[in-house]
Design a protein around this nucleic acid. Structure first.
Lengths: 168, 168
DNA sequence: GTGAATGCAAACATTTTGCAGGGTG
DNA sequence: CACCCTGCAAAATGTTTGCATTCAC
């Protein structure tokens, strides 16, 4: 009954460079489909975005770009993220506030979240049983299920790190 | 295996006047605890809010107040909704866009949603099995679970009504 | 070269805040 | 009568849009 081991470990696969091949490929075909262009800024932004942890806001990506020495307008950040969103390559979420955060949309994978209310720590998890139940509930209501969002809010265990993050 | 009948029917209990006694009581004690005051505007707004269906935005409540003949500033709407939010009497959510919607926070009850992507129809449901699984997942990650949000997105069955609502 | 992409600034939408006046306990 | 609450307007926040210029194909 070890739930933890039932969840796939995505962190590893996401950190290697090659694992995002599918992302760049999908982007390429989306761009040529729509007669859109590859640009320096887009490539740089997406590289940065993929290197950062998930749940990035436009502002964070903007800062990251500036720190990497690129002078890219905030408008371009939004336009790029919206593009990726329309291409179904990232997902736009709003956890709290009016702030949108974006995350890579791995096809066929789901992104449920455990979120610490004190420090904002986000842990991803996946649970097949819950997925199945969701399908059953949708069917019972004659809904054709397209997507879902499951966020669990609580307090994480690690007091020190939690307090640390909280001071930001 | 009839999931529908496993869910409590809240619509009925919410529509009767008396059923919100607990809400007003909780509000009273919150206000006196914090040395806050009862005012005409607050009472009116809350009465309206409780009479309306759930998932109300500040703007919608503002309109409702205007239509009821009250001249209440939008700032007061926000301040009231935030007050109720801090008192844990309503829950602030953001389904889409940057728009917050609010719903009554029935103590001990959960508000999961089935949302039609085409027409915006919202159906509430409750499922004990999912609740239990959530608790287990949180525990496995050493989280103390405080709240959750589960939204299922899909397409509803009723084509005509769906198209109708969609034109708004 | 044509049309899309960029940066900037202005526009926009939603929510918060400052302030003077009015109401509640 | 102290202090909270209100309405209004201004500010703050997050996101989008218009426009002239630059860049990709």
């Amino acid at each position: 009954m070890d739930l933890l081991s039932m969840e796939k470990n995505k962190a590893k696969s996401q950190s290697s460079r090659e694992s995002y091949r599918w992302f760049w490929d999908a982007l390429d075909s989306y761009l040529s489909d729509k007669n859109l262009k590859q640009t320096q800024q887009r490539r740089k932004l997406i590289e940065l975005f993929l290197k950062m942890n998930n749940h990035i806001s436009a502002e964070e990506l903007h800062d990251a770009a500036r720190k990497a020495g690129h002078n890219i307008g905030l408008a371009t950040i939004y336009r790029t993220l919206n593009l990726l969103s329309e291409a179904d390559l990232v997902e736009q979420k709003s956890f709290v506030n009016g702030r949108h955060v974006y995350e890579v949309n791995m096809p066929g994978e789901h992104h449920d979240h455990l979120i610490c209310l004190k420090c904002g720590l986000v842990i991803e998890f996946e649970n097949e049983e819950i997925e199945k139940l969701q399908e059953r509930i949708a069917t019972a209501h004659k809904f054709e299920l397209k997507a879902h969002r499951l966020d669990l809010f609580g307090h994480c265990a690690n007091k020190e790190e939690c307090d640390l993050r909280n001071t930001n």
